[in-house]
Structures are given as C-alpha cells and as structure tokens.
Design a protein around this nucleic acid. Structure first.
Lengths: 117, 117
DNA sequence: TCCAATAGTATCTTTTTGGATATTATAGCA
DNA sequence: TGCTATAATATCCAAAAAGATACTATTGGA
C-alpha cells in the first residue's frame, strides 16, 4: 500500500469516533450483542454513569455507528444496535486488539530485559 | 477471527498510544521520514507548540514507538526515529486511514440523502 | 562582550472531559 | 394517593489536556 501522506491523513477520523473513555467498550458490547436496551448496557458496564452513557451513545449515533430506537411505551424502552456502517469498524477493532496484545507482550519483555542490566 | 470479548479487550492499548491531539500526525511524519530532528518535526507541524511537541514525543518514546538520540554538540542536536516496534503500527494506521476515507464518504452520502427529504 | 541557534523547562490560563447528584414524565398498580 | 420502572436532563464540580508565553544552557564566532 502507498504510504499515507501526513498532510492528507484520515487517521483522525476513526480516532474521533472511538475516543471517549467508554466508547470502545460500548461498541464491543453492541457488536457482540445487538440490540441492547439502555439498562442492559448500563448493567454490562456498571462503572459508567447514566450521563456518560447517554453522552457516548449520542456521539456514536451521530457518527452513524449505532442506531437508537424508541418504543413509545411506559415505562420507556429504548434499544441501541450497531449499524451496518458501525460493523465496518469490526476489522479495525480486531486489529487494534491484536496489536494491543502484542504491545503488552513487547513492553513486558522490554521491562524484563532492563531489569537484568 | 473470534469475537473480542468485551471484558478482555485490548483495544484501549493502541488508543492510549495514539491518542493525543498530535500523535498521529507526528507518527505519520516519522514513519514517512526517519530520523527527524526536533526542529524538522516542528516545521512539519507548524501549529504545534514546543511544549506539546516535547510532551507527545516523550509519551511516544515511553511506549517504545519512537527513539530519541541526543548528539552532544552545541547547539544541541536531537534526532527522533520510529522504532521497529513503532513500525508495527503502520498496518493499523493504514487501515484507520482507509476507514476514515470510507467514513467521510459515508457521512457525505447520508447528508445528501437527508437533504433530499 | 554579545549574539545566534537548538532543544528544551517553567508557569499560568483556558478548554475539554468526566463525574456526582438531584430531578423529570408517564401509566399501571396496590 | 403514592409507588415503581425507564431513560433521560439539569446543575454543579473536579480533573485532565491543551495552549500561550517567558525563560534557560551552551559555545563558537562577529
């Protein structure tokens, strides 16, 4: 593949979509299990506050990564699901996960070596 | 590939390495052209402040993505280069760039469609 | 003696993120 | 009447990231 020219680089786009303390974990939940209700996601990620969850969901929605469906019932039901466009993130997330594992191993090995000196 | 289990997910690792307003652009410069002196990088990214550049470089260095070599001269000369480990980020960055392009196209198309309604 | 060049620090302020807590609308039900 | 459940908002506050600006050490040369 051609080298990415620094001045015409779209790497920042996926970063914008993925950055936020909770977005990757929300996404991975929805990729593994769509649709999910608000409360289900909240239960899957107990440490997140309601405000943060709402905010992150709205941001993901604005990038067309997830969809939001409101059922006009009482009490309200709202379901979130990964969109077709959101699914295209899967290979990137997989690669990132792989690299993450390799990175951890690399840093541990380095640590070990520097301890021996 | 197996699905990433949300609770054992290393996606946050590359994000930690890449996040920072200037890191991707610094990295892409060094991937395209290593080594570079501090001032060269500064010139390639004129909007960055000296403080920010130093900080981001130190962070990348701490993850063993780039190396820093000081030449004991006056005036000082410091060269930054991508490491072998840093090179392993290239395929991820390429994919992210590709996805970024597709994402922009997707959002534009969506915009267009919603304008017609 | 004083200046230029390089790669930084130090300090302070602003902006962006994240978080804690309280409040809301609604219909059915005891 | 007052309570429950759901998916939110509204306020206020704290912490982290980013940015502006000024300062520093060094030494060869004018």
């Amino acid at each position: 593949m051609d080298k990415i020219i620094p001045n015409y680089c779209m790497v920042s786009e996926p970063l914008e979509v993925l950055v936020g303390k909770w977005k990757p974990i929300i996404l991975l939940n929805l990729l593994a299990n769509s649709p999910m209700r608000f409360t289900e996601i909240k239960q899957a990620i107990p440490e997140i506050t309601q405000k943060m969850l709402t905010k992150q969901l709205r941001e993901l929605e604005s990038h067309d990564i997830i969809s939001r469906t409101v059922y006009p019932e009482v009490p309200p039901r709202v379901e979130y699901a990964i969109t077709a466009h959101g699914q295209t993130l899967q290979p990137i997330l997989d690669r990132m996960h792989q690299w993450g594992l390799a990175h951890i191993a690399h840093m541990e090995e380095k640590e070990l070596k520097s301890d021996l000196e």
